[in-house]
């Protein structure tokens, strides 16, 4: 069991880290294309080695610690951020099950957690500590403001996130992520069953990952770099990594919750062997995640940043009532349409 888990951890870490680097590359490409440019194409064929070059550059940079910084917390903050970002991945099912001979391996690191959704919500809430701590410990006004904005934003949008999530839980009747997928495999995808819930969750995910149009904690024109203004070298890279890891996580979670995870409709009817089915599942999951990633990037280069009051208005006056209404709607749906 342990060896199996370790192997899974290693594989997932490797894949996700690579994915993070290439998400950055994708971001730069999409950014360029939207602006009618070409984008990075110098390092390696088509610029595919650009992430390597970036990593090398960041590793070679000088690690600067500001004079007024709280040394220990300044060091701790990126560690918290990156840890949380990767821990969430423990409960995400990447595929159905892999059968090697008699042995059946579920394609989730912690497959036996039956409250995956709770774990997910809990861990993402911890993520804000990394950012807040970074803002406070840097000893810089810009960082502090970034940190403050971050905590306010997280608290506001976590409510909506939870409400969006609640509709899924109500429909599936379980907190187990595999269970949620199963309920979609057997019925309809949740995006169809709870479209408003999906919308709420999607918007809140943007806010929770500090992505445009909700990237106020690191709004460059106002706050230089926000909470990571005073970070350099690998410590900065950790924030960078965790930010993109969070995007991947959010994409994966949305895939699981609303797009049926690894499920591909009508594939069961083809009568493929279980191994092929698993591979198809993993590929389908990956494609869905990439689709969400593209969405994240696409939105970033299309929509301008909110003003702070607009952000709060949207969170409390629009999304929250909508979320509560959605619960009632979902309940009615559950009562009258299903069964």
């Amino acid at each position: 069991m342990i060896i199996e888990a370790l192997i899974k951890i290693a594989v997932v870490l490797l894949v996700v880290l690579t994915a993070v680097s290439y998400t950055v590359l994708l971001e730069r490409w999409v950014c360029a294309w939207v602006q009618d440019r070409i984008g990075p194409n110098r390092v390696g064929p088509l610029g595919l080695f650009q992430p390597l070059a970036d990593t090398l550059k960041l590793l070679l940079k000088e690690d600067i610690q500001p004079l007024m910084a709280q040394a220990w917390f300044h060091w701790l903050a990126p560690v918290i951020s990156i840890t949380v970002a990767f821990t969430v991945l423990a409960v995400v099912p990447f595929g159905h099950t892999l059968a090697i001979g008699e042995h059946i391996i579920p394609l989730t690191i912690a497959s036996n957690i039956n409250i995956g959704v709770l774990f997910l919500v809990a861990m993402t809430s911890v993520g804000v500590y990394g950012i807040t701590l970074a803002g406070w410990s840097s000893g810089s006004k810009y960082s502090l403001l970034g940190g403050l904005r971050s905590s306010a934003q997280m608290i506001s949008y976590e409510l909506t996130l939870g409400l969006g999530l609640l509709s899924v839980i109500m429909l599936s009747g379980t907190l187990d992520l595999n269970g949620i997928i199963d309920s979609q495999v057997n019925g309809l995808w949740n995006i169809v069953r709870a479209p408003i819930g999906f919308l709420l969750f999607l918007v809140s995910s943007f806010a929770e990952t500090n992505r445009q149009p909700f990237d106020l904690p690191e709004a460059e024109p106002e706050l230089v770099g926000g909470y990571h203004t005073e970070y350099s070298s690998m410590k900065f890279a950790l924030f960078f990594l965790s930010e993109y890891a969070n995007i991947i996580t959010a994409s994966a979670v949305m895939t699981v919750l609303f797009l049926g995870g690894w499920h591909v409709p009508f594939v069961d009817t083809l009568g493929l062997s279980p191994l092929v089915m698993t591979i198809v599942g993993v590929v389908a999951f990956t494609l869905k995640v990439v689709g969400f990633l593209f969405m994240f990037i696409w939105v970033r280069w299309s929509i301008p940043r909110f003003r702070y009051d607009q952000l709060m208005n949207l969170g409390w006056k629009v999304l929250l009532p909508l979320g509560i209404a959605n619960i009632i709607l979902t309940a009615l749906e559950k009562m009258y349409l299903m069964h």
């Binding site: 999409v30 360029a32 294309w33 939207v34 009618d36 440019r37 280069w301």
Partner: peptide, 12 residues
């Protein structure tokens, strides 16, 4: 609008 630009000819 931005999606359309993805396929425009590039100026670089």
């Amino acid at each position: 609008t931005t999606f359309k630009h993805l396929f425009r000819p590039k100026f670089t």
